[in-house]
């Protein structure tokens, strides 16, 4: 109790330090808030606003509000339904494929056996590799003539498709290359959930005569549902912003066969300089993300 002699926390009412200390939590939090207002919220609002203008980067002095013109142009745009379809194709395709295969991988890594740490570590490496490296490497692997994939297929006397040049195959190619990292990512997240499932509960189910599948279906799956929800939500949201894996691999082509909203906004706004029109695509994208998040919450996130 020696410390009782010391002065209590400084409370000099007028000094700046005393003020900051009494309001320490606010002082600690507000720099973050101000930065985030400046670099995300205000730009977000500006983008929504730009959707109602004819702003472009070539004659940016002469912009004015044009009401809903961008949106009526959007509705009449023959590319729009294709791009929305591609985006849904990518998001649903990768989320389902990555999560299902990732769950399988997580189940394989769940058991404790000698060397399991080795596998868990090595499956981290694709997640940590820069997406641009992944994209460039897969572009080389999928090359028609010089790529390894068609070379292996030729050794096995299988047909060798032009992966990146075929409108039907372009999106599946993007999804396959996405799985290389995505499966590992989902596996790492879901593994954490699997390892937290109560052993007593599983053994009780076995005692009651449940087989492996029943234990998985009725004990494990309900226990990991919260983390499954987060993993699926994060994956789906991340796929909306997927850039390198499309831009570098297929450049959105052939034609617009693998162009998603993310690429379309980038191309329209920053390549063709039609910022206002790009922003209306942005509003469409934000709406699509919101619908996706609500749908995932409805199927996986609701507490039952």
């Amino acid at each position: 109790m020696q410390s009782i002699k010391q002065a209590p926390a400084p409370r000099r009412g007028l000094s700046l330090f005393g003020f900051l200390d009494r309001h320490f939590l606010v002082t600690a939090a507000w720099p973050s808030l101000i930065i985030m207002l400046g670099i995300t919220l205000i730009p977000f609002i500006v983008t929504i606003g730009l959707a109602f203008t004819n702003y472009d980067l070539v004659q940016f002095g002469k912009w004015h509000f044009i009401g809903l013109d961008n949106f009526s142009q959007l509705m009449a745009d023959p590319q729009m339904p294709v791009i929305v379809f591609n985006t849904a194709y990518l998001v649903i395709g990768t989320t389902v494929a990555d999560t299902v295969v990732g769950l399988g991988l997580a189940i394989l890594m769940e058991a404790s056996f000698r060397g399991v740490g080795f596998f868990r570590t090595l499956y981290l490496l694709p997640i940590m590799t820069a997406p641009i490296i992944v994209a460039l490497t897969w572009r080389a692997m999928f090359n028609d003539n010089a790529g390894w994939i068609n070379y292996f297929l030729s050794l096995a006397h299988l047909p060798q498709p032009t992966w990146l040049g075929d409108p039907i195959l372009a999106m599946p190619t993007v999804i396959i290359s996405d799985m290389w990292t995505g499966v590992c990512f989902q596996a790492v997240l879901l593994l954490a959930g699997l390892l937290a499932v109560s052993h007593e509960l599983k053994e009780a189910a076995v005692t009651d005569g449940a087989n492996r599948w029943q234990v998985f279906r009725h004990v494990t799956l309900p226990s990991i549902r919260p983390i499954l929800f987060v993993a699926v939500l994060l994956k789906a949201i991340d796929e909306f912003r997927k850039f390198e894996g499309i831009q570098i691999l297929t450049t959105g082509g052939p034609g617009i066969a693998s162009t998603t909203l993310n690429l379309q906004i980038y191309d329209t706004g920053l390549f063709y300089d039609q910022v206002g029109y790009a922003a209306s695509y942005g509003v469409l994208m934000v709406g699509m993300i919101a619908v996706t998040a609500v749908a995932i919450w409805f199927f996986l996130g609701r507490s039952r």
């Binding site: 995300t40 730009p43 500006v46 983008t47 906004i265 920053l270 934000v286 993300i289």
Partner: peptide, 16 residues
């Protein structure tokens, strides 16, 4: 919110 909104939405105003 900022986890949900993709960078392409912020980046054009940030660029300006």
């Amino acid at each position: 919110f900022s986890r949900m909104v993709p960078p392409v939405i912020f980046i054009i105003p940030l660029f300006l």
